[in-house]
Design a binder for these strands. Sequence first.
DNA 1: TTGACATATCGTAACCTTGCGATATATTGA
DNA 2: TCAATATATCGCAAGGTTACGATATGTCAA
Lengths: 101, 101
Amino acid sequence: MAKELTLIALDDLQQAAECLKVMAHPARLRMVEILMQGKYPVHEIARLCELPDAQACDHLRLLKGHGLLDSERQGRVVLYRIANPRLPKLLRCIRSTCEAD
Amino acid sequence: MAKELTLIALDDLQQAAECLKVMAHPARLRMVEILMQGKYPVHEIARLCELPDAQACDHLRLLKGHGLLDSERQGRVVLYRIANPRLPKLLRCIRSTCEAD
DNA sequence: TTGACATATCGTAACCTTGCGATATATTGA
DNA sequence: TCAATATATCGCAAGGTTACGATATGTCAA
């Protein structure tokens, strides 16, 4: 059983694992879910996630830092939105996989 | 902007996050990738992942413990296989999402 | 300019994960 | 039974992640 397989490059796997680690938090999944419905300001996201604003900020920063979200200031508020268009599909895929555990 | 959204139950999000955390490791992604091609014994998986057998064992145990993999002993070796049929699709989805970062 | 609101950043302690080495268990054939 | 092979389990130290509270920065309207 020494046949060799064609495997994904380790770099790609590391990148994928990094991306998953960023998603692997209930609050952050919730944020992605919320932002699938449109742009929202931090305090609104925090409220929907039932988190203190500062914590929501931290999570949003992490997601943005990995290119999953983006943000734009509009006056006093900062609106976050999904930056990677494939994210919604991934979230749906995650749901259908994990629910069937 | 106080309209309410229909959100996924927190329990489901926690379960999904847990599942993602388990997948969020390059070696474990590699293992899923390998097992998408069939059943393999621990030492072979370890070799393909370039890991010591004991570490491969640990990772496999984690994946199995979360219902993602399953195993059967055949004589001296233990063959691991994918237990959740949706896993391959998830891995492909992850790849296409994360590559486009 | 000041106060109020919105967001961002940071330090810290508690907790979790990882890699590693040591050891234990299981199976087979000599 | 004994040695060899295969797998599993465990303890530990190092490093990473989290929630939390404190504080800083940015924006606007009075």
